[in-house]
Design a protein around this nucleic acid. Sequence first.
RNA 1: GCCGGGGUGGCGGAAUUGGCAGACGCCCGGGACUUAAAAUCCCGUGAGAUUUUAUCUCGUACCGGUUCGACCCCGGUCCCCGGCACCA
Length: 822
Amino acid sequence: MAHYDFKTIEAKWQKNWADKNLFKVTEDESKEKYYVLEMFPYPSGKLHMGHVRNYSIGDVIARYKHMAGYNVLHPMGYDSFGLPAENAAIKNGVEPAKWTWSNIAEMNVQLRRLGLSYDWDRTVATCHEEYYKWMQWIFIQLYKKGLAYKKENPVNWCPSCATVLANEQVVDGCCERCGSVVGKKSLSQWYFKITDYAEKLLSNLETMDGWPNKVKIMQKNWIGKSVGAEVDFEIEGFDRKLKVFTTRPDTLYGVTYMVLAPEHPYVEQLVEGTGYKAAVDEYLDKVEKMTDIERTSTTNEKTGVNIGRFAINPLTGKKVPVFISDYVLMDYGTGAIMAVPAHDQRDFDFAKKFDCEIIPVVDPGNPDIDINNLEAAFVAEGTMINSGQFDGMNNKAAIEKIIDHLVETGIGKKSINYRLRDWLISRQRYWGTPIPMIHCDDCGWVPEKEENLPVILPTDVEFTGKGESPVATSKTFVDTVCPVCGKPAKREIDTMDTFLDSSWYYLRYCDARNREEAFNYDKVKYWMNVDQYIGGVEHAILHLMYARFFQMALYDMDLVTTDEPFKNLLTQGMVIKDGKKMSKSIGNVVSPDEIISKYGADTARLFILFAAPPERELDWSDAGVEGSYRFLNRVFRLVTDMEDRVKAGADTYELKTSADKSLAYEMNATIKKVTEDAGGRFNFNTAISSIMELVNELYRYKEEKEINNSLLKAAVENMVKVLSPFTPHICEEMWEILGHTESIHNESWPVYDEKALVKDEVEIVIQLNGKVKEKLSVANGLSKDELQKLVMERDNTKELIGEKTVVKVISVPGKLVNIVVK
RNA sequence: GCCGGGGUGGCGGAAUUGGCAGACGCCCGGGACUUAAAAUCCCGUGAGAUUUUAUCUCGUACCGGUUCGACCCCGGUCCCCGGCACCA
């Protein structure tokens, strides 16, 4: 009996596939395409279980779709710019390029050991100049389109990484990467106008049925659309009007004070000559020194100062005081608010502390709430009061009416605000794509000429880990000439946020070796969209929104044919051990290398796919891995034991014995189950369990007196086929043992016979008052009435009912008969 | 605080349209084979009770409802996980 020697088998087939370039794919209009993509890794040098899970899921889908007749694009590459390479340079003096490329080489080996069906001819590495050349080209297109601009602004500054961070990269006021408390710094930085696409990014979500709801909701909240009105308030003795944004124009009559953000541009002029200047300056000074984390800390204690001015309510003419307070943010809305303490909890808290008037304008119509002595802001629906002509209306209905009134009287207008901010893309780092912009004293910022791309990242740099980009230390990089006027000029020394690199790599895969263009239009047209994208939920907002933005912008430039990149999204769960995330500090890390060496890649893949459905957390279990390994041994033994009989079998079979029927049923049921689970539902765990059932059935059949070799051939071969996307090496080997010379990968996916799934007899349940009392085998296809008649006429049933009275009988064909008795 | 997701045996999980709860696997127990062990194969395995080859009762976080019938639908409660968080 042959032994399952996974080491030899896996090495043999990996070489075989590579030699034949089995997974190479080209555009083929005669076939339906399928693009399956896993989020490419950062080449840290070490694959972890999360990667193995991600790529195993993708590989099953790719292999299944290929066998099912699709022209499958399944690429892999490296998101290879980024901080760790630079840190290695600072720490160990290794060149980032060298460090990165050696990591890529290492990961390449590890990925190949997993037996993944990638078209390696399409691989990309974002740090390769053939990639970042086109990254720069896309940047310039965005710039030309008006979607990239430079602006001096206070930005999130990580003191430890010595770089700026996008809003999305600040988590709880701390740097997403290193955890340092993020501060503020005023810097001139490049931004992308992602806010131009806020509405589209939001509204497209509605039709994206192939995305998990969770991710869509997270993006929706992040975009944060608010509909309301912009209202102009006059300020006494000031020639400019103060604009505010509100979602509650219905509460305009309840405004009792105004608040400006400390950074609001009017503050300086407004406080001039009021006698409040000293207090205001002191407050401004205090606020400026605060970090975001302090400023937004959850202690609801409001702070602020009166600036000694009065605003005039445009509807009532009432004079109200003006404050500054840090609970009003400069970068949302207009940086100023009208305060309605009766109907907004934050305003209420502030009013209580600063002793401002509270005027209720929405009546809850609830005797439990004392409207003139509120204990908290009333924010629910009610009836308008104290609001002039609008009294008596429902406040929701009044919103529209008041906006109409504002428009008629020229006081305000309808307005929409988004929480989404523009995307800050400059990084004061070395290991990233140089921003291809040049500053000329005469012409300002101008893009490098496209024929001069790529702007090569210099290598004559020093890594200090402090201050501005190391690129500035290059003797060759900075000085250049203006592409417009030819005078001496200076290059931008900042590099791009690496999230740009990953915002279009899926397009590059469609045409990865193109030296003339970023990607060919027709090739992209053929392959896009990505039919199935797979990755961790941690990318729900950042990467997945940036990539959508890129796709939309490129679509509007007619460079691509769709405005969304990813048709279906699968967010895989984390791999954990003993209920905790795998981490070095806890010491519960299981290395893929170790598992592959001990059990082989097929076992690793099988376990990871079997232990949990892909979206859920996966609890690593060493015993479970043993189980998967045992199963593969069991399958291998079965196939080698049955080899001669299978080879002797014919291509068609007849069912003679009941064991034949049972095996044929199990075979077809398994094909159906795996087809549904691997092809659409992606519940690989149940697909595998059904294959296990078929294998168990085959072991039973093996002991039969009469064995039908032809049926056995069909059952064994189909079993190997449906197993092959999960554990490809062992299946190739078994396929060869069974006498085949072509790769199983190029076999077509088996079809099940619906007729074979119709059993002659079905087991139905007899219930008494909904409780199962008896199971009964009856002929299949009985009607509701026939079934009921048959059951009710049985002696056993009569005995079951006994003295009781039958009230009702529910009969469900093929399922059950429920007798309701009293 | 707001918005999502979840809670099923000792464990991972299954139950696809409201119809046999616990598939498949792990663990554990028993047996066969073996000088022995490993491997393999077979049997058992939600809990409890009893008159124990079987029968009955309970059982999907908790309380209640709808229904002939609820892990599934509805209302309420508790707990866990994730996201956002002074966004006017």
